[in-house]
């Protein structure tokens, strides 16, 4: 019996060490998935402002892209290999481009992914991250992924 996509997301958050280290969680509302990055001091890149490290922003966006990709793939129309009992094999990032729109403040951040194209082998994903205001994103990204092959 294949796992629900909700439990696949929960397993990824619980089992991927670096995602746990960052502290990423998700909010689910209907079919919408929002990733949450709770602020912590170790995420700071500029202690003077203070501001989130650009690498943290990139990592959060990339994690959100993979979560969004799993969420979109496991909507009932297809499955991923290796997922029969536990975490399926994960998409591999081919490339990832981040635009830094303004500095990330020292507070919680949110991100949402949009899977622009989901092919059998390749996928293209856009991600946007914001803090206090959804209409003022502080970073956006575009990435390509190689889907795991059965």
């Amino acid at each position: 019996m294949a796992m629900t996509r909700e439990s696949v997301i929960d397993q990824l958050l619980a089992q991927v060490p670096y995602v746990r280290w960052l502290g990423v969680t998700v909010d689910r509302h209907g079919d919408e998935l929002t990733a949450v990055l709770p602020f912590s001091d170790k995420l700071i890149g500029n202690p003077v402002l203070p501001a989130l490290h650009g690498g943290v922003t990139a990592a959060f966006l990339e994690t959100t892209a993979v979560l969004g990709l799993l969420w979109a793939t496991l909507d009932g129309s297809r499955s991923l290999p290796g997922g029969e009992e536990g975490l399926p094999r994960l998409p591999k990032t081919i490339d990832f481009t981040v635009d830094y729109l303004r500095s990330g403040a020292a507070r919680d951040a949110y991100a949402r992914a949009r899977v622009v194209r989901l092919g059998r082998r390749y996928a293209s994903v856009q991600v946007e991250a914001w803090q206090d205001r959804r209409d003022r994103p502080f970073a956006q990204a575009n990435g390509h992924f190689l889907m795991p092959q059965g």
Partner: peptide, 9 residues
């Protein structure tokens, strides 16, 4: 390693 680690580096 996670891609984000490479990004940070």
């Amino acid at each position: 390693l996670h891609g984000g680690v490479i990004s940070a580096l």
